[in-house]
Design a protein around this nucleic acid. Structure first.
Length: 267
DNA sequence: ATGGTCGAAGGTCGA
């Protein structure tokens, strides 16, 4: 049986720990990477996580905002909590597996800044911050490009291709799909020799989304989604992926996150 | 063209 690794922007882990349980039990998740936990480490619902069978837990949280967490059935060591773009935001967590199917593989769990509404770094410091974060991710990717056995997952807050958004032309000036962002993400992927494992299994131009705004009255009927959540891997690990799932129906779970889980199977 | 909804914190901000 392949290992199942999931990434999910949970938008408050304490509010939605029940949905985490549903995901893990119904989809046999072995490694789970969460973003936007919005939870300080000392308030994390650890006993619930242990009850789900995750003996190995790494946290990088802060009060109120951001926050990432990685759980696993297989042992790992936490190898980094890097800071980017001159801020101490909790947006990265690296874990390196010590045993199991991912032995020797490092999983990087990221929550990239959303960037605010106005796609102009001059007037919008949040967008400037996002672009700086992206630039530093490209440098970081360049530094590890010659190494194998790595996975990068998370909410990258960019939908890179026309088939990753409901309307390419209409979103060109909307933060998450502007050319400076999509080209930046492409540059980063190439710098790190990352393989977009989701698109390896669900090729363009098939539409694929992982996020739908809370603001739409009927998200499913309108279906104005974006693919903001990603699973990338070095070529050696990408070659071991046997399939991916994007759990669109999770957007209809009770009191849902605005993002849905994305899952990859690895042998 | 506009405004629409969430969550955590908590006397708003970030998404």
């Amino acid at each position: 049986m392949p290992l199942r690794l999931a990434t999910w922007n949970i938008n408050s882990v304490r509010l939605r720990i029940g949905l985490v349980e549903k995901l893990v039990r119904e989809h046999r998740i072995d490694v789970l990477c969460l973003q936007e936990t919005k939870c300080p480490d000392d308030k994390f619902p650890m006993s619930d996580v242990r009850k789900l069978g995750f003996e190995h837990v790494a946290l990088h949280g802060q009060k109120g905002y951001h926050g990432v967490a990685t759980f696993s059935r297989f042992p790992f060591v936490t190898t980094a909590r890097e800071r980017f773009a001159d801020k101490d935001d909790a947006r990265h967590l690296a874990t390196t597996f010590a045993a199991g199917p991912l032995e020797g593989v490092t999983v990087h769990n990221f929550y990239v800044p959303a960037g605010g509404d106005e796609p102009d770094p001059i007037v919008n410091p949040k967008f400037a911050h996002k672009l700086q974060f992206l630039s530093e991710l490209t440098d970081w990717s360049t530094r590890i490009a010659d190494t194998g056995r790595r996975i990068m997952v998370g909410d990258l807050n960019i939908a890179p291709d026309p088939s990753d958004v409901w309307n390419h032309k209409q979103l060109l000036k909307i933060v998450s799909h502007t050319p400076v962002e999509t080209e930046g993400l492409d540059a980063m992927r190439e710098a790190g020799r990352w393989v977009d494992t989701v698109r390896s299994h669900v090729p363009h131009p098939e539409k694929l989304y992982s996020w739908w705004s809370y603001r739409a009255a009927d998200w499913e009927a309108v279906d104005r989604g974006r693919r903001l959540d990603h699973i990338w891997a070095s070529a050696d690990v990408a070659a071991r992926t046997t399939g991916v799932e994007t759990l669109r129906f999770a957007r209809s779970w009770e009191r849902p996150s605005d993002h849905v889980p994305v899952i990859v199977d690895i042998v």
